[in-house]
Nucleic acid binder design. Structure first.
Lengths: 322, 322
DNA sequence: TTGTATGCGTTATCAA
DNA sequence: TTGATAACGCATACAA
C-alpha cells in the first residue's frame, strides 16, 4: 500500500512539512489560507499521519498492554470489555496479551512490551516480584485480594471482605462441613484469599476442609469430579469461582442432592454472564465491570500525569448475588 | 524511564551502530570477539531494541488489529483465545478493538488502524462495503456465513450447512411450529443465515415463524421474554445463539414445559463455555477454536508472503453438540 | 569484518 | 507566519 506522507502534502501545497504539521496539530499560528489549502491537500491525498513516526518522535503510542491469564474466563472478559471502552474514549488502545499466572512467560511478555509499543501496562498477572522492567513503566495491577504497596497502582477486592461475606453466608451451627476450594497456593492471590477465608471460618467454629483445584480447569469440570470423589458429608462448597460453583450445582443435581437446601454452593466472581445463568448458587461478586472502570480511570490518569509517583490502592467492594 | 539505545551500546563497545545492529540481528559477518563484547554491553546496559524505531524503518510492526463486536460473547472469546496463542508463537501481537456491527464507528476504527500500528486486520465486523482503506491492508474476515469474494480472505461457516443441519434436527411432521430467531436483517450475516434456514425449512414443509431479537441483548434475556410473550404453540426454537437458547430453556422450565420432549431448543455457536453448561438443548457448533486456528494461520501466511494477491475462502464445518 | 551516510515520517528548536 | 535543521532509534546500501 502506498501511503502519502506529510511531505507529499507539503509539496502539493508548496509549503514546508513544518507548516503542515503545525496546521494539522493546531500548534502556533498558521494563516487561514494555507491552512485551508493544506486541508484540501490532505483530503486529496487521503493523508493520514503515520503514528509510528509520531511515536518515535513523541515517545508516546497511546497503547497500553493488557496482560490477563485467560480471556475465556468471563470475569476477565467483562473487565476487558469495560477497560477497552473507557480507554477508547480517551484515544487509548489495548494490546492484548494472554499469559498464564505462574509461568516464566510473564517476564518475557513484560520485557517484550517494554521498549516497544506501550505507554503503560495493565496486568492481572502479578505473581512475581516487581522486575526492574516493570518498575519503570506506568503499571496498574488488575485484581488481587491484598493491597500490594510494591506496585504503584492496584485495584483489588479486599480478601478480608470476602472472608467476612463467606462467613455470613455460612450460618453458624447449621452446617456440618464446608469445602473451601482454592487454586495453587504458590500463587499469592490464592494464598491470600484462602488465608482470609480460613481466618473467618476459624473465628466462627465452622468445620471445613480444603480442596485444591487445578488452574487448567477453566470450566470447573475436573474440580467438581474430584470434589465428590475425595470429600464426603459436606453441605457447603465455597467454590473457587462461579464456573466451579456452577458445575458443583450440576453434579449435585445429578446425584439428587438438593441445592441449596441440602448443599449450599457459594460462587465467587459475579460476571454478568454467569449471573444470568440462573444457577441456584449464591455468588460473592467482585463486580468486574466496576473493577474494569476503576482500572481504566487510573490508567488514564497515570498516563496523563506522566508522573509515576502517585501511588493508589483502591478496593472495589463486593456484593452478593442470589 | 531512561532507556539505552543502540548508540549507547556502540559507544560502550567502541564500534559503530551498524556493527551492533548486525551483531544483534545476525546479519552479515561480525567477528566473534566484537560480537561477544556487544552482547556483554547489551546486558550491562539492559538494552532492548526499540520496536517503534524498528517499525519506522522496516514498515512492519508485527501487530495485527482484531475487530470484534463483543468480547463478552464466548464465541468471540474462544476465537480470540486461539488466535492470540497461535499468533504469539509467530511473534505477532494483537491490538484488540471492540466495535458494534452496524455502527459507523467501524469506519473510524478502520481508518484509525490503518497507517498506524498494524500489519493486518482480522475482523468479525464486515457489514460494510470494502473501503479503500481496507482494500490495501491484509484483511482476514473472521466468520460470516457466505463466502465474500470482495474480501481477500474469509474463514466462514457455510450457511447452507447450517440450514441443512437445522432441518435434520427438526424431524419432519413431528413438530407443530418452529420459531426461528434472527438478529437485525440489515446485517448481511443475519440475512444470509436466515435465508439459508428458511430455504431449508420451506423445502421440508415445516411450519415456522420468525422472531427478531435485539442485538444488544448479550445474554438473551429480552429475546426470551418476547418469545414467550409474542408467540404461541411453538415446539421448536431455532435460537440465534447459545445464550438465547440457554435462556429459552430456563424460561420453558420455569413454565413447566419439558425440554426437549415438549419444546426442542436448538442453539447456535458451540463455545466450550456453553457446551459445559449442560443445558438440555442441541447446539449447532461452528467450532470457534477451529475457526480461530484457521484465521490465525491464514493471517500468518498473508503477513509472511507480503503478497495480498492470494485469495482464500475457507469454510469450517459445523458439528452438532447434544 | 567494519564504518559512513541515508532514510523511515514526524515533531521541536531555532531562525528568519 | 513560515522554514531549515536536527532528533527520535534503527536498518541498509554502499564503501572501504
Amino acid at each position: 500500500m502506498i501511503l502519502s506522507s506529510i511531505e507529499d502534502v507539503a509539496k502539493l501545497v508548496g509549503v514546508s512539512t513544518t507548516t503542515v504539521s503545525r496546521a494539522l496539530n493546531n500548534k502556533s499560528y498558521v494563516s487561514k489560507k494555507t491552512k485551508q489549502k493544506i486541508e484540501e491537500a490532505v483530503k486529496e491525498l487521503n493523508y493520514v499521519p503515520n503514528k509510528v513516526a509520531k511515536s518515535l518522535s513523541s515517545k508516546r503510542t497511546n497503547i497500553v498492554g493488557v496482560i490477563i491469564p485467560s480471556i475465556i474466563d468471563p470475569i476477565y472478559s467483562e473487565e476487558i470489555n469495560t477497560i477497552e471502552k473507557v480507554l477508547k474514549e480517551k484515544g487509548v488502545r489495548i494490546l492484548l496479551c494472554l499469559c498464564p499466572r505462574n509461568s516464566h512467560q510473564y517476564e518475557l511478555e513484560l520485557k517484550n512490551m517494554l521498549n516497544s509499543y506501550i505507554d503503560g501496562i495493565i496486568s492481572a498477572v502479578y505473581d512475581f516480584p516487581v522486575t526492574m522492567a516493570e518498575e519503570n513503566v506506568p503499571f496498574v495491577q488488575l485484581g488481587g485480594g491484598k493491597v500490594d504497596y510494591s506496585r504503584k497502582v492496584n485495584v483489588i477486592t479486599d480478601d478480608y471482605e470476602v472472608g467476612q461475606a463467606a462467613i455470613k453466608l455460612i450460618e453458624k451451627g447449621k452446617h456440618k462441613k464446608v469445602i473451601v476450594q482454592h487454586g495453587p497456593l504458590s500463587l499469592s492471590e490464592e494464598q491470600d484469599r484462602l488465608d482470609a477465608i480460613v481466618y473467618a471460618l476459624n473465628g466462627s467454629e465452622v468445620n471445613y476442609e480444603l480442596q485444591l483445584v487445578d488452574q487448567d480447569d477453566p470450566y470447573g469440570i475436573e474440580g467438581t469430579q474430584n470434589l465428590f470423589k475425595d470429600f464426603k458429608d459436606f453441605d457447603v462448597v465455597l467454590s473457587r469461582n462461579d464456573q466451579n460453583g456452577y458445575q458443583v450445582v450440576l453434579e449435585a443435581q445429578r446425584r439428587g442432592i438438593m441445592v441449596p437446601s441440602e448443599l449450599k454452593v457459594i460462587g465467587y466472581g459475579g460476571s454478568q454472564f454467569l449471573a444470568n445463568m440462573n444457577s441456584p448458587m449464591t455468588t460473592i461478586s467482585i463486580n468486574p465491570s466496576k473493577i474494569g472502570n476503576k482500572v481504566a480511570e487510573l490508567t488514564i490518569s497515570m498516563l496523563a500525569e506522566d508522573s509515576k509517583k502517585k501511588n493508589q490502592q483502591i478496593s472495589v467492594p463486593i456484593s452478593i448475588i442470589n
